[in-house]
Design a protein around this nucleic acid. Structure first.
Lengths: 139, 139
DNA sequence: TTACACCTTATAGTATACTTTAAGGTCAAG
DNA sequence: CTTGACCTTAAAGTATACTATAAGGTGTAA
C-alpha cells in the first residue's frame, strides 16, 4: 500500500496540505515519520487527529484551546470533569457573543423599521440620525 | 478658548489619540487643520464624526462599511433606501452569525449534559468521543 | 530654565488562522 | 528521460482594528 503523504491526508480530511504543515509546526499535530526523500508519511490515526481539530473548531474552540484539549486527552490523569469545564466555559463565551449580536440585531431592526427606506433625504433617515447622535433616536 | 487638540478629542470621545490618527490616515476622519506647531486642531463636529464611527461599529459595521456609510452621508444624491439596504444586509449577516453560534451552543449543551463530568476516564467522555469521531455521539 | 505633559512622524507589533510565494527536490507514468 | 504532479523549507502576506515604539519637537507652569 502506498504511504499516506501529506496530499492524501489533505484530501482525506478536507484540510489543505499547507494547513496540515501549519498544525504540525505549532504542535497541534505530532511530527510524522519521513520517507528517505523527506516526505511526511502519516498513519490512519492522523485523519482522526485532524478531525479532532476541525470538530473542536466547529464547536467554537480556538487552536490554543484545541491544544489544551489535546493535552487533556494525552494526560492519563485527566478526567471528564476537566473537559466538561472547558466546554462549559466555551458555552458561556458563546452565550455572551450571542447576546452581543442580539443587541445589534435588535437595534438594527428598530432603526431599519423606522427608516422610511425610500427616496427621502438622509436627514429623514433614522439610521443616519442615530449614528450622528444617539439621543435623537432612542432605542 | 483653547484649541481642541487630539488629546482633548480623545478624551471627549473615549477613543485614543492613536486611534484618531489611525482613522484619519485611513480616511475615516478628514484631515484637520493644524497649528503652526503642526498640532492637529479639531472643530466640535469632529466629536460627532468619531461618534458616528463608534456607533456604526456598535451596530456591527466594519470600518470599511463605516466608510461606505460616511460616503453616503456626504452624497447629496444618496437617499434613505441606500442606507437602509446597508442596514438590512448587516442584519442578515448578524442573523447568520447568531445562527452559527446557536448551532455551537446546541452541540456544546448536549455534549456537556451527556458528559458525566466526574472523575471518569476520558474514554467515557461524550465530548472527547465526539471530537474523536463524530459518529460516535450523534447530535 | 527646567520639568513635564502633550504633540509629531514612520514603522513595527498584536491577535488568529491560515495562505501564498519562492526556490528547489522527488516520484511515477509514458 | 522527460514531464508533470507532488513534495520540501523559510519567509512573507492576508484580514481587521488597532496599539506600541522610537526619536524627536512644543507648550506651559513653577
Amino acid at each position: 500500500m502506498k504511504p499516506m503523504t501529506i496530499g492524501k491526508l489533505a484530501k482525506a480530511t478536507g484540510v489543505s496540505a499547507e494547513t496540515i504543515r501549519y498544525y504540525e509546526r505549532f504542535g497541534f499535530l505530532p511530527s510524522p515519520d519521513r520517507l528517505e526523500s523527506g516526505y511526511r508519511v502519516y498513519g490512519s490515526d492522523s485523519i482522526q487527529r485532524v478531525r479532532f481539530i476541525k470538530e473542536a473548531q466547529a464547536l467554537g474552540f480556538t487552536l490554543a484551546e484545541v491544544s489544551d484539549l489535546i493535552g487533556l486527552t494525552a494526560d492519563e490523569h485527566a478526567d471528564c470533569a476537566q473537559v466538561n469545564e472547558k466546554a462549559t466555559q466555551k458555552l458561556q463565551e458563546i452565550n455572551k457573543k450571542i447576546k452581543a449580536l442580539k443587541k445589534m440585531q435588535g437595534a438594527l431592526k428598530i432603526l431599519s423599521q423606522r427608516c422610511p427606506a425610500d427616496e427621502q433625504p438622509l436627514s429623514e433617515c433614522s439610521i443616519v440620525n442615530h449614528l450622528y447622535d444617539v439621543r435623537e433616536v432612542a432605542i
